[in-house]
């Protein structure tokens, strides 16, 4: 993972209520939950700080009302945060003028919405050309670019259809094509697959991963579905009640949940697709006749092999044996230590 920081958020607050800025100032920028309730304020985002690195998929996960949607709207400046700092490419995003914001949105940001947000009066092609049209790009150029995007999301042949004629999955493909039309650096996705049927959702997730392999965007992805988060994320941030409870790799979160709340999600997570051998191996460096396993393998991929082997199998990292894994460790990894 590259460590270039694309977006940096620091002590971000977003309150809803009669006079949020004043209220926050009166409470030294850090009101307690009781103070919020007493003042009649809703703390949608409370003191959230994190970085988004270049080229990573950061998934913000939380249940409804956790503030995740407000957070992404703060970062994309659809909402104005009440206080805090926010840099985009090292430039102060919070104090950007309206004109600067429009420029940034026209060239550097793309966003996909839960209910697609397609313009009902435009066909597929002109929905996709829309952001380019706003930039003032000529008709030929923008239509060529849009056709490219439509092909990328697999909707060729549907250019002249209207959103009302498409299925949910197809509509979201249009939303994706539109958000990518300006070649944004940063791609925001706000629960993009939540409105879709489970089968279509799985298909769209795969499609999303395929796209990202090609495009390598910096992504902030919002979801309420922990499994989706685990499947897609490089890192996950878990939100509850407006606060960022924990942020880390999926493995990190499953293995070391910071709170009971996170542990609740982690318990039901598909461990075999999250945990790597490195996390469960013992440090006994055994020598076996079967070739050693890679420390970065997901345990689900090698479970059958380990469980059917009488003896532990060596685990190697960068060509060096670093430990071994046997049935006990594998079962611990798959079902959690207490399951025995």
């Amino acid at each position: 993972m590259s460590s270039d920081v694309k977006i940096r958020c620091k002590n971000l607050w977003k309150l809803f209520g009669p006079n949020p800025a004043r209220f926050l100032q009166d409470h030294d920028g850090n009101p307690s939950a009781e103070a919020l309730e007493e003042g009649g304020y809703i703390g949608a985002v409370q003191d959230v700080s994190f970085d988004v690195h270049d080229g990573e998929i950061l998934v913000i996960m939380g249940l409804s009302g956790s503030g995740k949607s407000t957070l992404i709207r703060c970062i994309s400046r659809l909402n104005d945060p009440t206080s805090g700092e926010m840099d985009f490419d090292g430039k102060d995003l919070l104090n950007a003028t309206a004109a600067e914001l429009i420029e940034i949105r026209r060239h550097k940001m793309g966003m996909v919405f839960q209910n697609f947000g397609l313009l009902p009066n435009r066909d597929v092609l002109s929905n996709v050309t829309f952001p380019l049209e706003m930039q003032g790009m000529g008709r030929e150029a923008r239509e060529a670019k849009a056709r490219e995007m439509v092909e990328l999301v697999g909707l060729t042949g549907r250019e002249a259809n209207f959103p009302g004629e498409l299925s949910g999955g197809q509509q979201q493909r249009v939303g994706i094509a539109r958000s990518l039309a300006v070649d944004p650096d940063v791609w925001f996705l706000d629960e993009p697959f939540s409105a879709l049927d489970p089968l279509i959702r799985a298909e769209m997730q795969d499609e999303f991963m395929r796209l990202q392999k090609v495009l390598k965007k910096t992504i902030v992805f919002i979801t309420h579905d922990f499994e989706e988060a685990v499947k897609l994320a490089d890192r996950i941030g878990i939100m509850k009640g407006g606060r960022m409870v924990q942020m880390g790799t999926p493995e990190d979160i499953v293995l070391n949940p910071a709170t009971d709340y996170v542990a609740e999600f982690a318990r039901n997570a598909p461990h075999e697709r999250i945990i790597t051998l490195r996390a469960i191996m013992s440090s006994d460096r055994v020598v076996t006749d079967v070739p050693p396993l890679n420390a970065r393998d997901l345990i689900g991929d090698v479970a059958r092999q380990v469980l059917s082997s009488e003896t532990p199998i060596a685990v190697a990292h960068r060509g060096k044996i670093v430990g071994s894994v046997g049935r006990v460790q594998m079962l611990d990894g798959l079902y959690g230590p207490e399951a025995q």
Partner: peptide, 29 residues
């Protein structure tokens, strides 16, 4: 007008005038 449509317009880099005439008014037709 569904808020997501307005937001989609904003994120497409609409100026307020473009947002009104190209997004909101057609959507509320």
């Amino acid at each position: 007008v569904p808020p997501e449509i307005t937001e989609a317009g904003t994120m497409s880099g609409c100026t307020p005038r473009q947002l009104l005439w190209k997004v909101q008014i057609p959507a509320g037709k």
